[in-house]
């Protein structure tokens, strides 16, 4: 048990990811307001992106912008650029899909006059 806690201390990124993931998931599961659910979805998405980016860190490495005159390049000096690339597009796509989900919420509000999912369900019947 104690060595498990010691293993977690070596991975603070995973601990933070789990807490953020669970809080986002909790909002999505328990709240009845549609916009609050979208807020929970946003926290959940950013927690997953945080998890990915944290794997790019290397001890003693700096940002992946090459210094001038370095030939051949010392690879250990720069962080891993690949997770950055994958998450960069994911963040922009996340905001675009956030716009679509908010558009769906406002379309539901115009049609049924409520943001509460129980109210909307009652008016659907």
């Amino acid at each position: 048990m104690l060595e498990l806690v010691g293993a977690w201390l070596l991975r603070p990124n995973v601990v933070a990811f789990v807490i953020l993931f669970l809080s986002g998931f909790y909002i999505m599961v328990t709240h009845h307001n549609l916009i609050k659910k979208v807020i929970g979805l946003y926290i959940l998405q950013t927690s997953v992106i945080f998890f990915l980016v944290a794997f790019s860190a290397k001890t003693g490495a700096t940002v992946p912008i090459l210094l001038p005159g370095a030939d051949p390049v010392d690879v250990g000096l720069y962080t891993n650029p690949l997770p950055h690339v994958l998450t960069l597009t994911a963040i922009v796509v996340q905001v675009a899909t956030l716009g679509v989900s908010l558009a769906l919420v406002s379309a539901i509000y115009r049609q049924y006059g409520s943001l509460d999912e129980d109210e909307v369900g009652k008016r659907l019947e």
Partner: peptide, 17 residues
Amino acid sequence: DVAVTGVSIVFSLSASN
């Protein structure tokens, strides 16, 4: 593409009935 999409989404969300 990103600039036009951002403006377009804001126009859509602010358009009332």
